[in-house]
């Protein structure tokens, strides 16, 4: 990750902030179209919560660059929000109050739209992958999923948690 041609941090922060604001607007659009469930609120009511999210996102992206742990910025965003939302956090109440107006599912739609567009770069390379490797990959998906699920099931029931 330590690249000598990286853009300098100030410019990275500014460009990231612009992109976070774009993503914020897209997420609020998704949030205001989707079904009214739970605490999901309209576009304007959700702006303060999105402001907080953008701020945390910026810090997380900068930490992802600064800390040489190879953890994705996503993990830092999760950890910061986690710390702010803990019961003994002095800002837990207002923080949760604002952020819960942005629905979980609304945040996923823009992500997957960008993901789909970026996958376009890889679809050409898929032709080099033989059908056999695709079949093996599907078995890998099943194997990792049910391997983990069965172990978790065994341990949770041994502990009497389920």
């Amino acid at each position: 990750m330590s690249d000598t041609t990286q853009m300098e941090t100030g410019r990275f922060a500014l460009n990231s902030l612009k992109m976070l604001l774009v993503v914020g607007i897209l997420t609020l659009v998704a949030n205001s179209i989707g079904p009214e469930t739970g605490f999901r609120a309209g576009f304007v009511e959700s702006i303060p919560g999105m402001g907080l999210i953008v701020l945390i996102g910026l810090v997380a992206l900068l930490l992802g660059r600064a800390i040489p742990l190879d953890l994705p910025a996503f993990a830092y965003a999760m950890i910061i929000a986690f710390a702010l939302a803990l019961p003994f956090s002095p800002v837990q109440g207002p923080f949760l109050g604002y952020v819960e107006r942005v629905d979980f599912l609304a945040t996923t739609t823009p992500i997957l739209a960008y993901a789909g567009l970026s996958i376009g770069l890889q679809t050409g390379r898929m032709k080099e992958v033989s059908w056999k490797l695709v079949v093996v990959a599907v078995f890998v998906f099943f194997g990792t999923y049910f391997g983990s699920a069965l172990i978790a099931q065994a341990v949770l029931s041994a502990q009497g948690l389920i």
């Binding site: 997420t27 907080l52 999210i53 996102g57 997380a60 999760m78 929000a81 992500i111």
Partner: peptide, 8 residues
């Protein structure tokens, strides 16, 4: 970048 709101 779009993953940040989801992470939060």
């Amino acid at each position: 970048i779009a993953l940040m709101p989801l992470g939060v």
